[in-house]
């Protein structure tokens, strides 16, 4: 098991380097010059002086060849140094360290919320296929799926303000146990809930037709016992497989939710780094994003044999 995890980690290193090289190259050659941006984006009467800008670029080491810059970046990274932001001069690591817990709290809470709500509801819908209950649950899930987070966010927020006049706008970060977190959490969970609910429902419907379930039901085993004993485990299989997709949905959704609700997390950091072509920050976020998704995939692969014993024979082959 430990060697398996180590091997996965080793496989991840070249891939993350490749991804970072690609992102760095695209940003370096196409996305604009961060120093020029400082002067160009400012309104009006700005002293845009090419000589001065070259002097700044020299001092920031941005005039070195592409590969030299990338290599020195990776060299620093190996020593645990993410460099400094080009636009604010702050240590990227400090920025990440402040932003990551916000996103992490939000993401983990959203996943838990999703699991707690979506799996039971999905099972109920699946067990009562084509009943009124099924339609209501499925219809709600599908409707949630169809509303983008950046529409739902501001709508809910401003509607709340209209319904509860005088209330402070739930904007900004107040920690995990703050009422301010409720709205972003709900908005962020909309899409994952819909996703998992539908997967669960589809899986339940499929499992219900399996012989062992039919047998159990024919033997008169109570529905609930059947559901818990025979259905839950196979149903979790495709759901767990989707964990990576859920992670991505949440990571993407977090970008909008953090923007809309003013949460100082990684998503907001990403957007500002992108608009400023702040390479060190973009790279650090790529690195962390890549690590997170890799870790969640690893987790899926470790959980997979536990959930579906039939698939365990392939583990050695991977």
């Amino acid at each position: 098991m430990l060697t398996y995890i180590l091997r996965r980690l080793l496989l991840w290193v070249p891939s993350v380097l490749l991804v970072m090289l690609a992102v760095y190259a695209l940003a370096f050659y196409g996305a604009g010059d961060p120093i020029k941006l400082i002067f160009l984006r400012a309104p009006g009467d700005v002293a845009y002086d090419p000589v001065k800008i070259e002097a700044i670029r020299d001092q920031a080491g941005l005039n070195r060849p592409f590969l030299v810059q990338f290599a020195s970046y990776v060299g620093n990274l190996v020593q645990g140094n993410f460099g400094n932001s080009l636009t604010s001069g702050r240590s990227v690591w400090a920025m990440i360290k402040a932003a990551a817990p916000v996103s992490f709290t939000l993401g983990v809470t959203a996943i838990l919320l999703t699991a707690v709500i979506a799996i039971p509801l999905g099972m109920v819908a699946g067990l009562k296929q084509n009943s009124r209950t099924d339609y209501v649950i499925l219809g709600t899930a599908v409707a949630l799926w169809a509303i983008p987070a950046y529409v739902a966010g501001p709508l809910l927020m401003v509607l709340l303000l209209m319904v509860l006049p005088g209330e402070a706008v739930p904007y900004g970060w107040g920690g995990l146990f703050s009422v301010k977190l409720i709205l972003p959490l709900i908005v962020l969970s909309f899409q994952p809930i819909a996703l998992i609910l539908r997967q669960t429902r589809a899986a339940v419907i499929e499992v219900m037709t399996e012989d062992y379930v039919r047998t159990a039901r024919a033997k008169g085993v109570p529905e609930l016992v059947v559901a818990l004993r025979h259905i839950l485990r196979p149903v979790l299989t495709p759901v767990v497989t989707q964990l990576g997709l859920i992670m991505i949905t949440i990571v993407n959704g977090a970008m909008f939710v953090e923007l809309v609700f003013g949460l100082p997390g990684l998503g907001r950091l990403t957007v500002s780094a992108l608009t400023n072509s702040d390479f060190p920050v973009i790279l650090a976020i790529t690195f962390i994003g890549s690590f997170l998704v890799m870790a969640s995939n690893l987790l899926v692969d470790l959980l997979y044999p536990l959930l579906d014993p039939r698939a365990s024979d392939v583990k050695g082959g991977r």
């Binding site: 050659y29 604009g32 010059d33 020029k36 941006l37 160009l40 984006r41």
Partner: peptide, 9 residues
């Protein structure tokens, strides 16, 4: 939108 297109390709 971005003026950085001015600095870009």
């Amino acid at each position: 939108p971005q003026q950085d297109q001015y600095a870009g390709p």
